[in-house]
Amino acid sequence: MSIEIKNLSFAYKNKQALDNVNLSLATGFNVLLGPNGAGKSTLFALLTGLYQTKQSTININGFDLFLDKAKIMSQMGVVFQQSTLDLDLSVKQNLLYFASLHGISPKKALLNIETILSQLSLTERLNDPVRTLNGGHRRRVEIARALIHQPKVLLLDEASVGLDMDSRLLIISYVRNLCQQLNICVLWATHLMDEVEPDDQLIVLHQGKVQAQALCNDLCEQYASNDVYQLYFTLTKNTEAV
C-alpha cells in the first residue's frame, strides 16, 4: 500500500475534525470526496506533517511519517487548497526555489521544469511573474511544482476548485494520465461529484469519519445507487450539500 492510515483522530480545541480514520490507498487515482468541513484539508495537513498527532500511524511508501519524514517528503508532491506560490517571483523562480528545497541542482531542475511546463502548456509563461497569471495557470504552476522532484505520491487538495470548466478538465485529465503513465498514488480531494469516475477508488469523508472506501462502481452497487450523487447522499444523508 502507498498510504496506510490507522486510528487517526484530530481535534481543533473543541471541534473534532477527524475521528478514528483508517485508510489504505494503493497506487492509482484515489478520490477523497467530502463536503466543505468534512476534514479533507486537516487530513492533508496531517499527511504532509504540517500537523502532528499522537496515537496514530501514518505510513507512506513503507516509511513512518514521524520517524522518516524526510524520506517521505522527498517522495511526496502536494498541491494545497490555498495557493502557496510567491506572487512576487516568476514561474521559473518559484519552481527553482522549490527544487532547491529538495536539493535538486538548478540544471536538473530546469530540465524537469521544461518538460512538465510543456505538458501543461505553460512554457511561454516561464518568465512571467506569478502575479500576472490567472487562477487556472497558477494551479497548473502548483501542479508543475509538485512534480519537479518526481514524487511517488501526489496529494491534491481541491486543486480544481474555483476554476472554469476548461481548466478543470485540463488539470484533472492531466493528473489522471500522469497517474497511469508513472504508476503513482494520487489522492485527489474534492467536493465536486462530477470529478469522480466509475473506476476510481472512492473514499467518502463526512464529519471527520470515513463513510465508505471502495471502487466507485462497487459502492454504487453495494448501496443500490444509480450514480455517485445518489451514493453520496445515501452515505451522508445530507441533502444540503448538493
Binding site: D86, D88, Y97, A99, H102, G103, I104, S105, P106
Partner: peptide
Amino acid sequence: MSISQYCYCCMGIIKRELFRFFK
C-alpha cells in the same frame, strides 16, 4: 542527502531572498 544537495538548497533560499528584495 548529500552535501551538494544541502548546498543547492542553501543557494536556492539565498537567491529567493535576493530576488524578493530586488523586486
